[in-house]
Design a protein around this nucleic acid. Structure first.
Lengths: 185, 185
DNA sequence: GAGACTATACTTAGTAC
DNA sequence: GGTACTAAGTATAGTCT
C-alpha cells in the first residue's frame, strides 16, 4: 500500500483511461441513485442522458425506453416546443419532414400541371370556357403561354422555313392549341 | 429551536408542499453540480430533464437549448435510433411526418388520376394506343371501368327510360368514353 | 421566499482482495 | 472486471436570520 495518495480525496490527478472509466461508472451510478431518490421524494419525472461524443452507444437513465418517453413528454412541454424548432433542424426526423415537404411541392406542381393540361383537353372536347373558375383560367393562361413559348422557340429554330405542312406533321397538339383555339371548337 | 429532529438526516417525513419545494430545489442543484463535475472529469456529454407531470414548464440541465442539443445527439445514436421509432409515435414531429405522408398518398392518387384522364383525352385527340406503356394501359383500364360504373349507375337510375337523346344532352364526355371509343377516333 | 450555519449522513478515491 | 473496505471529503435537513 502506497501512502502517497490520501483516501477519499477528489483530486483525480491521474487520468489514465482505465481509472477514468472506473470513476465514471461509480459516479454515474450514484448520480442515478440520487436522481431516482429525488424523483420519488418529490414525485417528479427525471430523465438523464450521458454519452461520450463519437461513440454509438449512449447511457440513459432510468432506461432507454423510459428516458425516451420522458424526453418525449418533455419535448411536448410548451417551453421546449418553442425552442425545439431551432435545434431539431438536423435530426433525422426533421430531415424526413423536409424531404417529404420538398416532394410534396414537386408533386403538387405536377398535379396542377396535369389538371391544366386536362382542362385544356376538355376545352377542346366541348367544355365551355364559361364553366372555368378564376384559378383554372389563370392556370390555363399559364399553360397557353408555355405552349406558345415552346412553339415560338421551335419557329425560331426552323428560321422562317416553317410552313403549314411541317406544323401538321410534327406538332398537331401544340399548333392547334397555341394559335387557333381561341374559342370553342 | 425544537430538538425533536436530527440535523442532516435524510428522513424527510414531513412532506408538506412548501418544504418539498425547498428540498427539490436544493437537491436538484446538487444533482446538476455533480452532473457537471462528472461531465468535465470524464469528458462526456450529460443532459438532464426533470418536470412534474401536468406542468407546462420543465426543468432542464445544462440549459434548455443545450439539453435539446444533447438530446438530439443522443437520439442520433444508433441504439436510441432503433428504439425511438416506437416511442416518438406520438410526438409532434412524428405526427407531422404522418400527416404529410397521408397527404402525399392522397395527392399522388390525384395526380395519377389526372394523368390517366389526360391520357384518355389525348387518346381521343389522336395519340396512338400503341404508344402507351403497361402502367398507363392499366391506369386507363381502371379509368374506363370507373366511368363505365358511373354510367351504369346513371342508367339504372333512369330505369330503362334512357334513350340516345338524354345521353347526348347530359353525358357527352362519359358516354363517348365508356362505350364507343374502343380504338382510335 | 433566499442565504448562512451546522451536526449528521452520505459519497467517494484509493486500495486490497 | 468486480466487491469490500476506509479515511477524507461532500451533501443534506433542519434551523435561524
Amino acid at each position: 500500500m502506497s501512502h502517497l495518495a490520501k483516501k477519499g480525496c477528489r483530486n483525480t490527478r491521474n487520468l489514465d483511461e482505465s481509472a477514468r472509466k472506473v470513476i465514471l461508472k461509480k459516479r454515474l451510478a450514484s448520480l442515478c441513485k440520487q436522481a431516482e431518490e429525488l424523483s420519488i421524494l418529490c414525485d417528479i419525472k427525471v430523465g438523464m442522458v450521458a454519452f461520450t461524443p463519437g461513440e454509438t452507444k449512449a447511457f440513459s437513465w432510468p432506461c432507454l425506453t423510459q428516458t425516451n418517453a420522458t424526453i418525449n413528454e418533455y419535448l411536448a412541454c410548451d417551453e421546449a416546443k418553442q425552442q425545439i424548432k431551432l435545434f431539431t433542424q438536423e435530426t433525422y426526423l426533421q430531415r424526413k419532414v423536409d424531404a417529404r415537404e420538398k416532394y410534396i411541392g414537386k408533386i403538387e406542381q405536377t398535379a396542377k400541371e396535369k389538371e391544366m393540361e386536362n382542362l385544356f383537353n376538355q376545352l377542346a372536347w366541348g367544355k365551355s370556357i364559361q364553366e372555368l373558375d378564376a384559378r383554372e383560367t389563370k392556370g390555363l393562361l399559364k399553360l397557353f403561354e408555355a405552349k406558345q413559348t415552346k412553339l415560338n422557340e421551335r419557329k425560331t429554330k426552323l428560321n422562317e422555313h416553317v410552313d403549314e405542312n411541317v406544323l401538321n406533321q410534327n406538332g398537331v397538339n401544340d399548333s392547334n392549341a397555341g394559335e387557333e383555339n381561341d374559342g370553342n371548337p
